[in-house]
Computed example of a mutant assay.
Amino acid sequence: MLLANHPLLGKTIPGDTASRLSIRAAEDTARFSLRIDPAAVQAAGAAFGAPLPTRIGGLVEAGGRTALQLGPDEWVLLAPVGESDGIADAFAALQEPHSLVDVGHREVGILVEGEAAALALRSAIAFDVEAMAVGTGCRTIFDKAQIVLIREDKNRFRIEVWRSFADHVWGLLQAVSREIALGI
């Protein structure tokens, strides 16, 4: 969480009115990596305070909390920063074997919004971003940086990227936004 050291603090790429592309740093959030047996998903959801999805790529948002299933026994959990300790305490009391790692210090979020959002992402992601369903997410590569990509809405994506790669991803998004604005 280390908001004071956020590499993208205060940065925005406004895009232009023709493409209606906006790229900005996402508000800081509590972030956890959860590994647990899928048979215990209901208990984990109770500890998290929101249901967990039960299919890979599935996304559930409830009560300001977001859960994304990345693998058969792996989830990314996002919540308001102030709820981090409560979530950790709830999982500490969970009577199921699991691994909950606070990765809030490691990652930052970037929001890519507008009609040209998928086009901007397509510039550095090797799969068909347009085919990604709303309300899903995946781990993928943006240029050479590993990211988690979440499609929140038709024209709104969230990138979760390691803090050390944030400037690299940001710079590529900035370059592609200029190309989109110029119609290149």
Rank of each mutant, 00 (worst) to 15 (best):
P7G: 03
P7T: 02
L8I: 05
L8D: 05
L8E: 04
G10H: 09
K11N: 08
K11D: 06
K11M: 12
T12Q: 13
T12E: 15
I13W: 06
P14W: 11
P14A: 14
G15Y: 10
G15I: 07
D16K: 08
A18S: 15
A18N: 13
A18G: 10
R20W: 03
L21Y: 12
S22E: 15
I23E: 08
R24L: 09
R24F: 06
R24I: 02
A25M: 04
A26E: 14
E27T: 12
D28I: 00
D28Y: 04
D28K: 03
D28E: 14
T29P: 00
T29G: 01
A30W: 11
A30C: 07
R31I: 00
F32Q: 00
S33V: 00
R35P: 01
R35F: 03
R35S: 12
R35C: 01
I36W: 01
I36E: 01
I36V: 13
D37L: 01
P38T: 05
P38F: 02
A39C: 02
A40H: 13
V41Q: 10
Q42C: 00
A43E: 14
A44T: 02
A44L: 02
G45Y: 04
A46D: 14
A46N: 11
A47F: 05
A47S: 13
F48Q: 01
F48C: 01
F48K: 03
A50W: 07
P51M: 08
P51F: 02
L52T: 05
P53S: 11
T54S: 09
R55D: 04
R55K: 11
I56T: 15
I56W: 04
I56L: 00
G57D: 11
G58P: 13
G58L: 08
L59M: 11
V60A: 07
E61W: 00
A62Q: 15
A62E: 15
G63Y: 09
G63P: 05
G63E: 11
G63M: 01
R65G: 04
R65I: 02
T66I: 14
L68N: 08
L68H: 09
L70V: 04
G71Q: 08
G71I: 00
P72D: 13
P72R: 12
D73L: 04
D73A: 13
E74P: 01
E74I: 03
W75Y: 10
W75R: 06
W75C: 09
W75V: 07
V76Q: 12
V76C: 04
V76S: 11
L77E: 08
L77S: 05
L77P: 03
A79Q: 07
A79K: 06
P80F: 02
P80R: 13
V81E: 14
G82K: 15
S84G: 14
D85E: 15
D85V: 08
G86E: 15
G86L: 10
I87W: 05
I87A: 06
A88W: 00
A88D: 09
A88N: 08
A88H: 07
D89L: 10
D89T: 12
A90Y: 10
A90T: 09
F91I: 04
A92H: 11
A92V: 00
A93Q: 15
A93T: 13
A93P: 01
L94D: 06
L94F: 06
Q95M: 08
Q95Y: 00
Q95V: 02
Q95S: 15
E96P: 00
